[in-house]
Amino acid sequence: MLEVANVSKRFGGLLAVDGASLKVAEGSIAGLIGPNGAGKTTLFSMIAGAVPPTAGEISFAGQRIDGLKSHEVCHRGIGRTFQITQPFAGLSVRENIAVGAHLHHRRRADALAAAAEVAKLVGMAGLLDRPAASLTVAGRKRLELARALATRPRLLLLDEVMAGLNPTEIGEIIGVIRGIRDSGVTVLLTEHVMQAVMSLCEHIHVLNQGRVIAAGAPSLLVTDPKVVEAYLGRAAAGRIEAGSRHAS
């Protein structure tokens, strides 16, 4: 449903994304992982239309979407959350979510009602009248999710929605994401919480220094020396490889 082909992004002298390609199948939960600064957020921003790619093509549901603006990409059916949360700080939780719901509801009353429904899905029903500025980190992450969900996307891009959450909160949000997928929404997520990635994702792409260095099922990737090296450095990769050779 989403196809990214040889996409690059250059910021001045820095090649943040370097010819990255990936595919996300409809109805799946796919992961995009990689160390800090690998280019995950930049790639998300390019898919979402917030940052124009320097090179490459992005297609969604069979149509080119690179070159579209953020709001146009949203109208096509892609929702995104921001790693650095971007709440409408002066508004209540309900009003925040209603802005997203307005995409499909012209009337204010309908958008507010839809917002309350979405809030239930992400476990924010009790916080609807709170000012967004008063939310905790976990609350803000949920709000990001709720707002994007309110636009009724077909593909949802989740940029580290678990960062800064405690284990209980992570457990809850994993349940929420599964529920979203089960309702028919395709999900592409980035995450540093490995246990979550491993349990949620059916397919994972590993990004390192802007390049996709590996892709496949989670169980296959943990033993891939390229992946281990990207995360832990060459020495560790060598030790682990030696260790597994001993064991076999």
Partner: peptide, 20 residues
């Protein structure tokens, strides 16, 4: 809706654009 969008633009343009 126009009013909700206007306030959203005031509060955060990047988030507003991402919501269509």
């Amino acid at each position: 809706r126009f009013g909700a969008y206007l306030v959203a633009v005031r509060e955060n343009e990047a988030a507003a654009a991402a919501l269509g």
